[in-house]
């Protein structure tokens, strides 16, 4: 069970993911179509996991991802962009899902991050 911030500019996909993840028992905030909206949201409530599309209507997701990483938020990148893999290297410990992925793959990715967050948290504690 985790609080997930969903950022996806293709709302149809966003709503589908939201449905899928909520069915898996997660609390989903979003989908947000722009980086600006998402950053504004993060100021008010910090999620546990960021589920982020890479290319958004107002640009690359990096400023948001950097911000979330700085707050120890676990990240899942969901992108059809070929450079998504680069993000995997830039943000250690994140999960990258190629677009399109099956709902199970998405759920598994979130589960993986939830587990790492718990492991990391335990380790931190």
């Amino acid at each position: 069970m985790a609080k997930i911030l969903l950022v996806e500019d293709e709302l149809l996909i966003g709503w589908d993911i939201k449905d899928t993840l909520e069915e898996a028992g997660h609390e989903v905030d979003g989908p947000y179509a722009t980086v600006a909206e998402a950053l504004e949201r993060v100021e008010r409530a910090l999620p546990e996991i960021g589920f982020l599309d890479v290319r958004l209507a107002d640009g690359e997701v990096d400023p948001l991802a950097d911000r979330l990483q700085a707050q120890d938020v676990r990240l899942v990148f969901h992108s059809g962009h070929i450079r998504a893999l680069d993000h995997g290297r830039r943000y250690p410990g994140c999960t990258v899902c190629a677009k399109p992925s099956t709902p199970d793959e998405l759920v598994e990715a979130v589960a993986q991050q939830v587990a790492r967050r718990k492991g990391g948290g335990l380790a931190a504690e």
Binding site: E10, I13, W15, D16, I17, G80, K99, P100
Partner: peptide, 14 residues
Amino acid sequence: VKNLFAVISALVTT
């Protein structure tokens, strides 16, 4: 194309 596939995928589930 990938985006479209994702849209179609979402359409299917939706």
